[in-house]
Amino acid sequence: MELKEIDKNLYSVDDWMDEKFGKVGTPEREEFRKEAYAYCVGQIISDARKQEKVTQSELAKRVGTNKSYISKIENGVIEPGVGLFLRIIDALGLKFDIVKPII
C-alpha cells in the first residue's frame, strides 16, 4: 500500500482509509465505522468496569443481562441498545452528557 506523502514523514490517513475501507459514504466504510464504534464503546465499558473492580458477572446482574452479553459488548462484537448502555453507565457510576459541539 502506497501512502501519499504530504511532507517529510507525514502521510494522508484519509487516503489510507479510502484505500483500505472505501471512500466515505460507501457500504464498506460505513461497516468499518460501525465496527470501530462498537469496539470503542466496548473498551470504554471494559476499562470503567475494571477500574471499579466489578466482574462481568456482577455488571450483568446489575443491569439485567448475562455475563456472555457483557463480554460481547466489551469485545466489540455487539453494541448495546441505548437503554442497556445507559443502565451500564449508571451501574458503573459514570455520567453521560449530551452536548452540542462547538464549531
Score class of each variant (00 low, 15 high):
Val63Thr: 02
Glu74Met: 06
Arg33Gln: 12
Arg49His: 08
Lys50Arg: 14
Ile6Phe: 06
Glu58Val: 06
Gly81Cys: 04
Arg33Glu: 12
Lys61Met: 13
Asn66Thr: 05
Leu3Tyr: 14
Gly42Tyr: 02
Asp7Gln: 12
Met1Glu: 09
Asp18Ala: 10
Glu31Asp: 15
Leu10Pro: 06
Asp97Glu: 13
Tyr11Thr: 01
Ser57Ala: 15
Ser57Asp: 12
Ile70Asp: 00
Asp97Ala: 07
Tyr69Asn: 07
Lys95Cys: 08
Tyr69Met: 09
Leu59Pro: 00
Thr65Glu: 07
Lys67Arg: 15
Tyr69Gln: 06
Pro80Phe: 05
Asp7Cys: 11
Val82Phe: 15
Leu10Gly: 03
Arg33Asn: 13
Ile78Thr: 15
Val82His: 12
Asp14Arg: 14
Leu10Arg: 14
Glu35Met: 01
Tyr11Arg: 05
Glu2Trp: 13
Gly25Gln: 01
Glu5His: 01
Gly25Ser: 03
Lys34Tyr: 04
Asp18Tyr: 04
Leu84Lys: 10
Glu35Asp: 01
Asp90Met: 06
Gln56Asn: 03
Val77Phe: 10
Lys20Gly: 04
Glu52Met: 13
Gly22Cys: 08
Lys34Thr: 01
Val82Thr: 12
Asn66Lys: 10
Ile89Asn: 11
Lys95Pro: 04
Asp7Ile: 09
Ile73Val: 12
Lys20Met: 06
Lys72Asn: 12
Tyr69Leu: 09
Glu30Leu: 15
Ile45Trp: 01
Asn9Pro: 05
Ala36Glu: 11
